[in-house]
């Protein structure tokens, strides 16, 4: 099993590789096109702003390679936080179009909801309700929780692409999935055993 964590030069790649190695799997942090082509599974982490993220992919000449591997060859990929947002059509945070793999757009949380003040960013531990791929969230008798830190969220236009949802004033989409493409808004690599279970399940998933 060869897992490549795509290095955009600006993400929290250290934490993701730490957890995957702790789980006993091999992984490499890289932006090398050959390694990405030979990988079994890809992870696209993300910290930073939307345009910086898209520019990082463009500047590393990864766009064509990712489209071929993920869309044509259907290689499983997991986007984390900004990594998932980049898979939408675009973001209110930036001007550059996203990858457009999901029928979704990335929007900013309002600082009020139903007249109540809402703190943005949404930062801390929150629970998620799985809509599919329950194995990613299994095993904790509904007590699982994940660490979130984000000011933007994905608005999914096709409900069949919703992987999971979370409440923050209102319900929002905290994970997306279509075929071999997965994305989560929270940080599994920073979510203790709940995150380990999710990463392990993704790695062992047969798509």
């Amino acid at each position: 099993m060869e897992i490549i964590i795509i290095d955009t030069g600006m993400a929290n790649v250290g934490s993701v590789s730490n957890m995957i190695r702790y789980l006993g799997f091999q992984c490499t942090v890289s932006n090398d096109i050959n390694l990405i082509k030979n990988a079994d599974k890809l992870i696209l982490p993300g910290v930073g702003s939307f345009d910086e993220g898209m520019l990082a992919l463009k500047n590393s000449h990864l766009l064509d390679c990712l489209i071929e591997e993920v869309i044509t060859n259907r290689k499983p990929i997991l986007g984390i936080c900004l990594g998932m947002q980049l898979m939408t059509k675009g973001s209110e945070e930036g001007k550059i179009p996203g990858l457009g793999w999901f029928d979704a757009e990335t929007k900013k949380f309002d600082s009020t909801y139903l007249g109540q003040k809402r703190i943005v960013p949404h930062m801390g531990w929150n629970s998620v309700k799985a809509s599919k791929h329950l194995e990613l969230f299994d095993g904790f008798e509904n007590s699982s929780k994940f660490y979130f830190v984000h000011s933007y969220y994905v608005d999914a236009y096709n409900s069949s692409e919703i992987l999971c949802t979370t409440e923050y004033g209102e319900k929002f989409v905290s994970g997306l999935n279509k075929d071999n493409i997965f994305g989560v808004q929270f940080h599994p690599e920073k979510s203790h055993r709940y995150g380990m279970n999710l990463l392990k399940s993704f790695i062992e998933l047969e798509c």
Binding site: N12, G14, Y147, K190, S191, G195
Partner: peptide
Amino acid sequence: FMPLTYGGGIETIENAKKIFKSGI
């Protein structure tokens, strides 16, 4: 395997990059 905040001596984008890359 939980969120970490680090403070101390960060005065440049380059330093900040290194901090984030190490898993903060």
